[in-house]
Computed example of a mutant assay.
Amino acid sequence: MRVGRLTIDPPVREVLAGDQLLRMSAREFDLLTLLASDLHRVWPFGALVKALWHTDYLGDHEQLASTVKRLRKRLGPNAGCEVHSVHGVGYRLQAVDAAVA
């Protein structure tokens, strides 16, 4: 799976930014893989919580927000993609055009 400058390899649970291996937690990897699986989708908080923690969403998304924050930090500015917040709804992954920066 390719997004921006990332290559995500779910079977071996690796993410490469160019030729550099990005180290991330299992939860960060799962979140990235889920978001990358459908780039045109805004993933609602409830769907992400259910997929990552296998529990129902009860309105508190602090744990999810913390995971997103860590993932954004791991991706950094050179990944060619960003995790975007959709206010009051959830998150989506979007490829970033380097020429627009």
Rank of each mutant, 00 (worst) to 15 (best):
Y91I: 06
G90D: 02
W43P: 01
A99I: 12
L6F: 02
R2E: 10
A79G: 05
A101M: 07
Q94E: 14
G18I: 12
R27L: 13
L34I: 14
S37G: 12
V3I: 08
A47F: 04
S85N: 11
Y91F: 14
R13I: 01
A47I: 07
L16V: 00
E82N: 00
D19F: 08
L6R: 00
L39R: 06
Y91K: 03
M1F: 02
P77M: 10
L52M: 11
E82G: 00
L52F: 11
D97N: 14
R13W: 01
V12Q: 07
L35P: 04
L58W: 13
L22C: 07
W43N: 03
D30S: 11
D9Q: 13
D9V: 15
L58S: 15
A101Y: 10
A95Y: 05
R13F: 05
A47G: 10
G88D: 01
L39E: 03
V83I: 14
R70K: 15
I8G: 12
L6M: 03
Q63Y: 11
A95M: 08
E62F: 10
I8Q: 12
K50I: 01
L93K: 04
H54E: 14
S25H: 06
D97F: 07
A79H: 03
E28P: 07
I8V: 15
D30M: 04
Q63A: 15
S25N: 04
L32H: 01
K69M: 14
A65D: 14
F29H: 06
P77Y: 09
A36P: 03
G80K: 02
A47H: 08
E82P: 00
V89I: 15
R23G: 10
T33E: 15
A26I: 05
L58A: 15
L58F: 14
S25V: 05
W53G: 00
L75P: 06
P11G: 05
L6S: 01
S25G: 13
V49S: 03
S37D: 08
K69P: 06
P44Q: 01
L58G: 15
V15C: 08
L16R: 11
R70P: 05
P11F: 04
D9T: 13
T67S: 14
V68C: 08
M24R: 04
K50Q: 13
A26V: 09
D30N: 09
T55V: 15
L48N: 00
A95E: 15
L31R: 06
V3H: 02
E62I: 08
G90K: 01
G59H: 03
E82S: 04
A17V: 08
D97E: 12
L48E: 00
R92F: 01
E62D: 14
T33G: 11
W43V: 01
V49H: 04
R41V: 08
A101K: 05
A95C: 07
V89G: 01
V86A: 09
S25M: 05
L48Y: 02
L93S: 04
V3K: 00
D30P: 01
D38F: 06
F45W: 13
L35R: 02
G59L: 07
